[in-house]
Nucleic acid binder design. Structure first.
Lengths: 98, 98
DNA sequence: TCCTAATATAGACGTTTGTCAATATGTTAA
DNA sequence: TTAACATATTGACAAACGTCTATATTAGGA
């Protein structure tokens, strides 16, 4: 079980490009070259963003020859959901997912 | 219904002080002076952080005379939960909350 | 082997961020 | 009104961030 730094995760998600990348990775793994097509940034900049997403644990890399395939890490994502779902305004019964 | 900027919310949560503040506001409203006690930052710095949390919509202020009481905004928090819960790694049936 | 393609790393640069001291604003009590 | 208190705003500064160009690394095909 990885020790999760939620500040690092939220910081990673606090950028429009990276948040879009995470949404693109939702449900399906994607190659770096495929991700790059969706943005008007250079390849090194994408690589930099992917490093930040990987470093916080939210994204995994699977290297396959020349290609890097990125996907969301299910365990970290699950813990992130738990973390967010635990937050509550005090105005109702503390409902989540019912 | 507010139009929610999730990048702004995640950016707000991507700071250790602010994330702790949000957790402190979970379930119960708190006064600025009470929040300030928990950190070794100056009052203007806390005020700055509260502005960022309010500007993204996640936190509400209720002013009561000299005091400002902060609380989590239930609607924005609910939308944030939905947003995060929709994310999925491709490895299972896309489960959330079952 | 040599060349090309996919990705990563290094270094530079302008912008944004977190913090503070100083000051302003607004509220309550005397 | 004046004083004291709670909070907000301003202006400054160092550190962190997003982006680029240039270069390095690594893999596959000729």
């Amino acid at each position: 079980m990885p020790d999760i730094d939620y500040v690092l995760i939220f910081k990673a998600l606090g950028d429009d490009k990276r948040l879009k990348i995470v949404q693109m990775l939702s449900d399906e793994e994607k190659c770096a070259c495929k991700l790059l097509e969706e943005f008007i940034i250079t390849q090194p900049t994408l690589s930099h963003h992917m490093k930040i997403l990987c470093d916080c644990g939210l994204v995994d890399v699977r290297r396959d020859g020349k290609w890097s395939h990125y996907s969301l890490n299910g365990e970290v994502l699950g813990n992130l959901k738990k973390f967010v779902n635990k937050l509550n305004d005090g105005k109702d019964g503390g409902a989540l997912c019912k």
